[in-house]
Design a protein around this nucleic acid. Sequence first.
DNA 1: AAGAATATAATTGTTGACAATTAATAATAT
DNA 2: ATATTATTAATTGTCAACAATTATATTCTT
Lengths: 225, 225
Amino acid sequence: MVKNTHSTIASNVFQQLKNEIITGAIPQGQKISEVSLSTRLGISRGPLREALRLLEAINLIERTPHSGSKVVSLSYSKIRELYQIRELMEGFATRLAASQMTRPEIDTLYRLLDSHHNQIESSGTHVYLQEEGDKDFHYYIYSKCNNQWLLDYLDNSLYQLIMMCRQQTAQIPSRADLGISEHIAIIDAISDRDPEFAEILMKRHIKGAWETVKRLIFEVDLESK
Amino acid sequence: MVKNTHSTIASNVFQQLKNEIITGAIPQGQKISEVSLSTRLGISRGPLREALRLLEAINLIERTPHSGSKVVSLSYSKIRELYQIRELMEGFATRLAASQMTRPEIDTLYRLLDSHHNQIESSGTHVYLQEEGDKDFHYYIYSKCNNQWLLDYLDNSLYQLIMMCRQQTAQIPSRADLGISEHIAIIDAISDRDPEFAEILMKRHIKGAWETVKRLIFEVDLESK
DNA sequence: AAGAATATAATTGTTGACAATTAATAATAT
DNA sequence: ATATTATTAATTGTCAACAATTATATTCTT
């Protein structure tokens, strides 16, 4: 039932390392030694190097010739630029999706939101579940944008970095409601076939997320001194 | 004087293959055999595979596990989606640049345009020179956007594909003037510190380029049957 | 003792052989 | 003759050893 046909060591290791970086198991800025990592994983350096190239391609590690790789460290300005470009691209993706989603797809989106909402209420207010639901919601929309370059960049590169930011600011419990009402408003705009408005709402939603992240970064900064 | 310090076989081969693909020396859709290519280049398969990973990262080749790599083939819809996303991102980059470029940088941009204009008039109307100048102009602007993710994506991924499109439609001589007056208008808006207008003009400019490409694709299509 | 030059160690880059998988060919059954 | 299975060939994936480069430690000079 696992879709691990066509699996290779390189791609598996890529997935594993991606998770370890995003969750912070391998901390930001850490230098990566090919020999020690490959021995830890029980593989040779060949596939590991391929995995590292893939990680570099989605901006999770930086690589300098003859010197080595290290996990990216997300400075304040990098995160700001990240949310800036996310607002632009995901806003546009939402506009495209709003003009192209079918009625059944919109219904599914409503149900998706409902189910997440119920899950959160029934199982207490687990932040983890909320964030999973948030991710699903955003993914479901931008995956309907009908532009393969946009989708590829949002899904493979931008969102990985966004997840990393969340991990970085997740120590402090975030705002209780992750913008559920905003989510509803966005779907309503899509349902009304109003792409411009859907885009505006999504951009505001992301801008709000950025404000939260910014505040958390500031608070973490205060705590550490 | 060459800045090939820190050069590796993999990165050199990457550059070479990138050029061969963009210029069409290796045609679109062609399957790539690792053994024959590595022997042709006189290297082993290791660095070639690294180069192929890099090419995959900028969307110039597609790769399927255990099957192999092939050069991407730019269908009509892919090109349309490419220009769609280029308009969005480069337009936004222009807005950012307009609000952040310094006066000396703007002056340099004016001189750049002048020098290209003179070169074209003096040496006849070489299409090649025009396109080089066009590329320089666009690069100089979006490189001032102050957003590393945006710059990275525009420069490394999108523009490589755009160059491929041009190659594809370059058999037919394109419109005589590549929009020099539009270029001037864009710089003027930047010089006037009017980011919104600069963005609008850049988006219109790119939309115009797309209309030209679309027409050329259509004509090529007619010729071939 | 401080700094520069040299030598040593550690790390990354490259290679060629081998294993695993897929594509192509030949043989067999209906 | 066609479709299906078995066999062979070709291609990609992985490994371990070697070469080239960079980082570290040591020695030497002032």
